[in-house]
Write a protein that binds this DNA or RNA. Structure first.
Lengths: 192, 192
DNA sequence: ATTCTTTCTTGACATTTATCAATTTCTTTC
DNA sequence: GAAAGAAATTGATAAATGTCAAGAAAGAAT
């Protein structure tokens, strides 16, 4: 049931079977069909979510009905709305499945307890957050510095697996350009 | 010498005098004149830096000589290049003083030791990183969703003190637009 | 296999933002 | 307080990107 999660944890930290069982004792497995929501704008997000299988997106919908993708996540990534989790305020973001997915959920109070009980787990979590922060700094830098074409090439280079797996219009939205612009950009850079 | 730093720490966690002395025993105070570098692109960044006084910017310079501002920081904020600090790779960013500034520096190995020795300090650090991550997520969202005008209004609302303290062309660069565009945007929104 | 839906592409045109150059305003320094 | 330097504004024009609409291609469902 939690094989992928176990493999992930073993690849980063060493846990005894007891510790792993302790973790899974508070974990639940959620299966999502394509297009199903994991979280909807306005609800409070209370979990740490680890993706065992599939692919999700985090996004908002604005007044005009346009979607803006904040992030993608696939196998062995964590997802959710950190701000809502941290503050307890209603989420600004939706999370839904791009493909049928399997998500490990651990409610915040349980998660926090585990962090206290298992220091290496805690260290791992902090390391992940720190790296996420660095990654988002780099994304900001790309966003304010690059042209549409540069943004796309940078994205493909950084996340080649996303580039083939995720519909282009969602990638466009992630990059902050329209689907039409991305289509044209791809056409131009294909020739080079 | 470290009064501002002490006040800052006292406002977030409780430390004994001994613990505070332990921290400052490995801290140095760096004074920067306006325009002086704290870090230059290409050098490795090895510190945690707390601003006691003044204001700095973190930015890159691209091939065309254009500057792109990743972040500002002022009194009671931390700054530096987290990626370089984390990985030991040369920094992508410059950091320099927008005004004469006073910065508390703690080298990474010392800082990590202190985190181990003083759990509440460690917790504080993680909390800061987590909040920084959330803030940068929000900035990404603004960057991909908003028009130039919306970006500026959002910035002013979030950081009213920066808006009055920092030259407009740097704010423009932070928002990912040209100085001319920001000037026009301000003119238009002033009328409303 | 056919239909239905979603995604992607293309064209024509509109809008936003960038670029370049000139001028004005504001700061800093001596 | 005059001179120099930096920052901000403005105008004219160019380039990039967005919008709208239509059709083609690809994928999913029956």
């Amino acid at each position: 049931m939690f094989e992928v999660f176990r493999k992930y944890l073993d690849s980063r930290i060493s846990l005894t079977d007891e510790q792993f069982d302790r973790i899974t004792s508070v974990a639940t497995l959620k299966k999502l069909r394509k297009k199903q929501y994991l979280l909807q704008q306005g609800d409070v997000w209370r979990f740490n979510a680890f993706i065992q299988k599939g692919c999700v997106r985090v996004y908002t919908v604005d007044d005009k009905g346009l979607e803006h993708v904040l992030s993608f996540a696939q196998e062995n990534w964590w997802t959710g709305d950190r701000e809502s989790l941290l503050t307890g305020n209603p989420a600004k973001f939706n999370v839904d499945a791009i493909e049928d997915s399997e998500i490990v959920l651990i409610a915040k109070p349980d998660f926090d307890l585990i962090c206290k009980e298992i220091p290496v787990f805690n260290d791992m979590v902090h390391d992940i957050i720190q790296r996420s922060f660095v990654a988002s700094q780099n994304r900001i830098h790309a966003s304010i510095s690059y042209t549409a074409e540069e943004k796309y090439l940078d994205f493909v280079k950084k996340y080649p697996d996303f580039a083939v797996r995720i519909p282009q219009h969602m990638i466009a939205s992630y990059l902050g350009v329209t689907a039409e612009t991305l289509s044209r950009v791809r056409k131009v850079s294909a020739k080079k």
